[in-house]
Every structure is written in C-alpha cells, then in structure tokens.
Amino acid sequence: DESNKPILLPNESQSFERSVQLLDQIPSYDTHKIAVLYVGEGQSNSELAILSNEHGSYRYTEFLTGLGRLIELKDCQPDKVYLGGLDVCGEDGQFTYCWHDDIMQAVFHIATLMPTKDVDKHRCDKKRHLGNDFVSIVYNDSGEDFKLGTIKGQFNFVHVIVTPLDYECNLVSLQCRKDMEGLVDTSVAKIVSDRNLPFVARQMALHANMASQVHHSRSNPTDIYPSKWIARLRHIKRLRQRICEEAAYSNPSLPLVHPPSHSKAPAQTPAEPTPGYEVGQRKRLISSVEDFTE
C-alpha cells in the first residue's frame, strides 16, 4: 500500500519547517483550565467582593489541597506544564494547583491565590483569567444561592456549585447557560463527603469543560472538536499529503500518493430520524474511523 510507505522529508523547505513548528504547539495530551472561586458570607451577589477574597475557610483550604498538586509557578516550564496563561514571573501569584493523568493536564485558576492589587480596583487582572475559563468551581460559603452570571465573562458556560453542609458533607450541583443544557445535566445534585469532594468536583468540572469545548467549536462548523492527539494525527497526515504533492510536482515521474478510497458502495440502511441538538453535539466527541485508517 503506497499510502503507508515511509517518505523522504525535504531537506530545505520553509513550509515544512513551519508545519513542524506548528505541530510542536499541539500538545500530545488534552488540556483544561478551571476557575475556582470562594464566596464568603454576604458575597453571593457581589463580583468585586468575591474576586477580592485572599483566603477562605478551613474546609475550603482542605478542598484545594485535594484538587491537585501545589506547584510554584516560577519553577514551571510552560512547554511541559500546562498553566492556561498564568504568568511565571509573579504577575498572577506564586502558587497554583494542577492535576494530570496519562492523557490530560488541568490547571486551576484560583482567585484566592492570585494577588489582590490596590491599583486594580475592579480586579481585572484576576478576571482576565477567571472570566475566560469555560467552567468555574464555586465554593459557596455564603449561606445564600449563587446565580450564574454573578461573575461577568463571555465564556462562563458552567458552574460547579459546592455548598458546604453539616457533618462534613457538601451539596454539589451544576448550573449552565441555556445554550449548554443539551450537553450538561443540571437536574441531579449530589451529597458528597469532604473527603471525596475534590475528586467529584474535579471530575464534574473536567466533563463540563470538555462539553464546553465542543459547544464552543460550533463557531467553526468545519472543524469538529477532536482530542489533542487526534489533532496531531490529522496535522501529520495533512503534512504527509502536502509533501507527496510537492514531490510529485517537482518530479512528475513519481506517483502521487493519495489516501486509500473505498470503491465499494456502502450498504443501504433504513433512514433514521434526524438526531436532535443534544445527540449531534455528543457525537462530535467521537472520532471518525477515517482518522485511523487513511
């Protein structure tokens, strides 16, 4: 099969070098950035008060330690540790928490760990991170309901609301924008112990962030949302095809390698009803078989 044979790379090609550099910018793992907010007593309706908090309760602090690993920003190499735009020179604080497994990295933009500057009256330095995160974990210690939209931002799609209760338990629920209701189930609340709260809140936030990324990708319907490693695979396959075309153009005697095509017509299947918005969006999480067989 010609399409699977190794090909020689061009010795000097600026377009090839640019493509390789672009490939280096696509990590081999999925990345997520999640905002974390603490809401104190009497702050449920005040964005400024929430963003001005420099610490929270003892249970909130224990919750943070379970979310991930504490890292010092100045020691991080952005090409190895995903920071979601946090500055490593102290502009966004000294520490944050991050978490990773074999296929993804997540960083938490924690408002109480970011510096509260006197010259920044409206807390814009914090909002440029927190307001651009799709998902926020809100530790609501106010005793009042927290409403979506209290923290203004164009991309605040989903809130994971943590409400501490007695007996070391917590109520965990989801809020989302109306255009996200087909992807996020907000109907079920959970009672979770303090011990298990970081794991549950983190998983709910990661799932909500993946759904938000799919939702946000609708602005470019021709580019369905893939995982990062599938995006790398697609980029490599496009690069291979372009090299083959350039080689055939410079030397017409060489065969032009095309991806294999299936001449056999697909079997006719009964027509199915058109899937609704929710089903269609969830299918976009699934990769096409052509990603692996071309």
Rank of each mutant, 00 (worst) to 15 (best):
E2S: 05
S3L: 07
S3H: 11
S3W: 07
N4R: 13
K5G: 14
I7G: 10
L8G: 10
L9Q: 12
N11Y: 09
N11I: 10
N11L: 10
E12G: 08
S13D: 13
S15W: 14
S19E: 15
V20L: 11
V20D: 09
L22D: 15
L23I: 08
D24F: 02
P27D: 14
S28Q: 09
D30Q: 05
D30T: 07
D30N: 08
T31N: 04
H32V: 15
H32C: 15
I34N: 01
L37V: 07
Y38A: 00
V39A: 02
V39M: 02
G40Q: 02
E41F: 08
S44T: 11
S44Y: 03
S44W: 03
E47V: 01
E47R: 01
L48N: 09
L48M: 12
L48W: 10
A49T: 03
S52P: 02
S52M: 06
S52K: 08
N53I: 01
N53C: 02
E54N: 07
H55E: 09
H55W: 15
G56P: 02
S57P: 03
Y58M: 09
R59L: 01
Y60G: 00
T61A: 06
E62K: 10
E62C: 07
E62P: 00
E62T: 05
E62R: 10
F63D: 00
F63A: 00
L64S: 01
T65N: 15
G66R: 03
G68E: 03
R69I: 06
R69N: 15
I71R: 08
I71M: 11
L73S: 15
L73R: 14
L73M: 09
K74D: 10
K74R: 10
K74E: 06
P78M: 12
D79I: 02
K80C: 04
K80T: 06
K80D: 15
V81L: 08
V81N: 14
L83C: 11
G84D: 14
L86T: 15
V88M: 12
C89R: 05
G90P: 12
G90I: 04
G90N: 11
G93L: 13
T96R: 06
T96A: 11
T96K: 04
C98Q: 12
C98F: 09
C98V: 15
W99M: 04
H100V: 15
H100F: 14
D102L: 04
I103V: 08
M104P: 02
M104N: 13
A106I: 14
A106W: 08
V107Y: 14
H109I: 04
H109M: 04
I110W: 01
A111P: 05
A111K: 03
A111V: 04
T112F: 01
T112G: 02
L113H: 04
L113T: 03
M114T: 04
P115E: 04
P115H: 07
T116W: 06
T116A: 08
K117C: 12
K117G: 09
D118M: 12
D118I: 13
V119R: 10
V119D: 15
D120W: 09
D120Q: 10
K121I: 09
K121Y: 13
H122N: 13
H122F: 13
H122I: 06
H122G: 15
H122A: 13
C124K: 15
D125M: 14
D125T: 10
D125V: 09
D125A: 14
D125Q: 15
K126Y: 05
K126D: 04
K126F: 05
K127N: 06
R128E: 11
R128V: 08
H129I: 14
L130F: 06
L130R: 03
G131P: 03
N132Y: 07
N132L: 09
D133W: 02
D133L: 10
D133N: 05
F134Y: 04
F134R: 03
F134G: 01
V135L: 00
V135C: 04
I137M: 01
V138A: 01
Y139A: 00
N140Q: 00
S142L: 01
S142W: 00
S142M: 01
E144N: 07
E144T: 09
E144Y: 04
D145K: 05
F146D: 01
F146M: 04
K147N: 12
L148W: 15
G149P: 05
K152G: 13
Q154G: 15
F157A: 11
H159C: 13
H159I: 10
H159L: 10
V160C: 02
I161R: 01
I161M: 07
P164G: 00
D166S: 04
Y167R: 03
E168Y: 04
E168S: 07
N170R: 00
L174E: 01
C176Q: 02
C176E: 01
C176W: 03
K178I: 09
E181D: 03
E181P: 09
V184D: 02
A189E: 11
K190W: 13
K190S: 15
I191H: 03
I191Q: 04
S193D: 04
S193G: 04
D194F: 00
D194K: 00
N196W: 04
N196V: 04
N196D: 02
A201Q: 01
A201D: 00
R202W: 03
R202D: 00
M204N: 01
A205Y: 01
A205V: 01
H207Q: 04
A208H: 03
A208T: 03
N209H: 07
N209Q: 03
M210K: 01
A211D: 00
A211V: 06
S212V: 15
Q213L: 07
H215L: 12
R218Y: 07
S219R: 11
S219A: 13
N220P: 04
P221K: 05
T222M: 05
D223Y: 11
I224Y: 06
I224D: 10
P226I: 05
P226D: 08
P226G: 08
P226Y: 03
S227Q: 08
S227D: 07
K228I: 09
W229K: 07
W229D: 14
I230G: 11
I230R: 12
I230F: 06
A231W: 10
R232M: 08
R232H: 09
L233Y: 10
H235D: 13
H235C: 14
L239W: 06
L239D: 12
Q241I: 04
R242M: 15
C244V: 08
E246K: 07
E246H: 05
A247M: 14
A247W: 08
A248T: 11
S250R: 06
N251H: 11
N251Y: 13
S253K: 05
S253R: 07
L254Y: 14
P255H: 06
P255M: 07
H258W: 06
P260G: 15
H262Q: 14
S263C: 07
K264A: 14
A265P: 11
P266R: 12
P266M: 11
A267T: 10
Q268W: 09
P270A: 12
E272Q: 06
E272T: 09
P273N: 10
P273I: 08
P273E: 13
T274I: 11
P275M: 12
P275H: 10
G276N: 10
G276I: 12
G276P: 13
Y277E: 15
E278F: 06
R282L: 06
K283S: 08
R284D: 13
I286M: 14
V289P: 15
V289E: 13
F292G: 14
T293Q: 10
T293S: 14
E294Y: 05
E294C: 13
E294K: 07
